[in-house]
Structures are given as C-alpha cells and as structure tokens.
Design a binder for these strands. Structure first.
Lengths: 182, 182
DNA sequence: TCCGTCATATATAGAGTTGATATATATCGA
DNA sequence: TCGATATATATCAACTCTATATATGACGGA
C-alpha cells in the first residue's frame, strides 16, 4: 500500500486537498492505520492526475492561501475498488516505547516511570480523539474501524496500567552509571 | 528510530550478522515492534563501523557462505544506552486490513469473509510464534515485551471473531458490479 | 537423478517515503 | 508586538523498502 492508494481511498469519500489528506492520515480518521507526509502526498497527487485517476481545480479563499481541490474520476474509483481485491499485505507496527522497555534493566526507575506515564497519557489523548471522530462518522464500516482502534488502544492502556509497577521494579534503583558520569 | 539504532539494540545483546538482524526484526523477537530490510541493514552496519560503534570479522563456515560477524564497541554501547534517554517517538501502525474493512460496503461477502478468516489465521500463527520465542528468552524485560505483544494480538483476534458476522453483514450480497463486469 | 524450493549469507539499484525546511497569509493569546 | 498556531503548497537530502543478483548446500518429490 503506497501513498497513491491512500490518496485514492480518501478521495473516494469526497473531494479534498493535499493538506487535508495529510491531516486525516496523521490526526484524523485514517490516523490509526495509515500515514503519509507532504513529501509523498503532493508527488502522488500529481502522478494520479497524469494517470487520469484524479482531476483538480484551484479554489481561492479569503484569509487563507488558495487551495487545489482534487476529485477522483470514475477510472480512479474503479482502479481503487479493484485494488481492494488484491491480497493484503501484513500490518506494520513499530514502537520505540517497546524498544525502550526491552532495556528497562539498564535504565533508572524515575525515567521508566516517566515514560510509562507519558505513554498512558498519550493513549488517553488518542482514545479521546477517536471518540470525537466517531461522532462525525455515520457509515457503519467507518465507525467499526474507529471502534476497533479504540478497543485495541484501551486494551493496551489497561495492560500497561496493570503491569506498570512490575516493569518499574525491573529498572535500576540508581541513576545509570554511563549517564550519571556525564 | 532508524535502522542504525535497531542494529545497535540487537548488537547490545550479543554479536551477530546482518542476515540475523534482518531475521530477528522480521520473524524473531524484535518483529513485533520494529523491522528492517537488507537494503537498509547492510549500509547501516557499514556506517556504524566507520563511526567506530561496531567492529566486524569474517567467519568461514562449512556448507554455508562465510559470514561477517559484527560486535558492538564500548563507544557503541554507550551511544545506544544514552539514546534511550531521548524523547520517544510515537508508535507507527499501518494496516491494509483496516483500510480494506473501511470499504466493506463496496465488497462482496465472500471476499470479506475470506480476508477475515485469513486474518484470524495470521493472528494464530503470530501467537504461536511468540509462544515459541518466549521459551528462548529469560530476561524479564524481553519476556515482558513478548507477552505484551501476545496480549494485544489475542485481544485483537478475539474482537475480530466476535464482530466477524456483523462486518460480513455490511458487505454486498452480490459480487460488486465493477468487478463482476470484468 | 534432476529439478525446484528453501535456508544461509551479502550486496545493490531503483523506487518510494520521511523529516525538515521554505514560502505566504491570518488569527489568537501573552 | 511577538511568538505560536493554522491553513496551504512545495521541494530536497537522507533514509528505507522492494526486488533482484550471486553463491552454496540440503531436502524432497517426480
């Protein structure tokens, strides 16, 4: 799944801008399963236009820079829906937090506690964000995906809270020598 | 977190090869929170050697190609442990499966059921794999991370099984016209 | 026996992506 | 007034992935 596919997926649900695609993929309704940056979205939209999968028009705005609104073409829609029949690639998950926890024995308790608390707070923020998003969506599949994300996040958060003291107990009581020596 | 950091993390736990780093990051004990490919691992190891964070030696093997074994230097170890004190970046999660589910209404039930079953089977494989891995590890933090991964996967699997029929019901009873017309 | 596949092992080219930065304008709060 | 934030597009170097090439041995099936 590349950025072109993400753009087509979002455009399938209505015309929009590159700026908005990025926002939805990093903070909005798509944020919990995909992401894309400006550096890949703008070139992707240009290519999609070349290929005839999208069209664009420039819209002037008061008090804001004028924007370029993209719409998907019938060909683009067909191409996207057909691509949903392809074999699915595996999920990708990366977590610096879990890498960090793998080395708790080498780190001071104060730092470990701080990072775990930060993590729990981030989960809370994310759950709040999903709750807000759910109100904006009525299509059952859209709500289902958001619910699934929320369910997984709540579960991870709960497990972390339950295990918190056990993990902190694994950390060093004193500041790590390598760091303390600085 | 870049590939250089992943290499250092794995090398912190013992000398190894580029091939093994890739294997552990895609199928082994690191697979549930990071990943790296050959195209990034080999250049990363070369750079780390240039920078003095690792050293290497070539080891001839019978019946197998000779391999290049990397070891972390004291400087490399210090650099890695210090980097664990940095602010943590957010987790990254991407799922073609969830993108697929977001468009169930446009897809035939047979396909949706097939993909959900494939997904559940993959969860089962992954859970089995983590169980095997857990036996190989004794360090509490390593086991904790594997357990956390297993817990999250079991939860997602269970939720999917519970919701399966509800999702399938959202899909189209007939083959999608756009596809059927091909 | 021969052939394909799989596992070990390193390496690279080309395509794709990220992260940082530049540009421009307007609003909001300190 | 100053900095931060939001809207909006765009680009570039650095990084990463996917696919492929190379080489060898083992294993199983036709």
């Amino acid at each position: 799944m590349n950025v072109k596919t993400i753009c087509l997926a979002i455009l399938t649900q209505g015309e929009t801008t590159g700026y908005d695609i990025r926002k939805r993929s990093t903070e909005g309704d798509y944020a919990y399963f995909m992401e894309a940056s400006f550096g890949s979205i703008y070139p992707a939209l240009s290519k999609l236009e070349e290929e005839g999968y999208v069209t664009s028009r420039t819209v002037a705005q008061e008090g804001k820079p004028s924007k370029r609104v993209y719409q998907i073409t019938p060909t683009g829609r067909e191409f996207f829906i057909n691509s949903l029949y392809d074999e699915l690639n595996d999920d990708m998950f990366r977590s610096e937090f879990l890498l960090f926890l793998r080395f708790v024995e080498d780190l001071p308790r104060s730092l470990v506690e701080k990072r775990i608390n930060e993590r729990i707070a981030k989960c809370d923020d994310a759950i709040e964000n999903v709750k807000k998003l759910e109100k904006e969506f009525t299509k059952p599949s859209e709500r289902w995906v958001l619910n699934f994300g929320q369910h997984c996040m709540r579960n991870a958060r709960q497990y972390l809270i339950e295990q918190k003291h056990e993990i902190i107990a694994l950390a060093q009581e004193e500041e790590h020598p390598a760091r303390a020596a600085e």
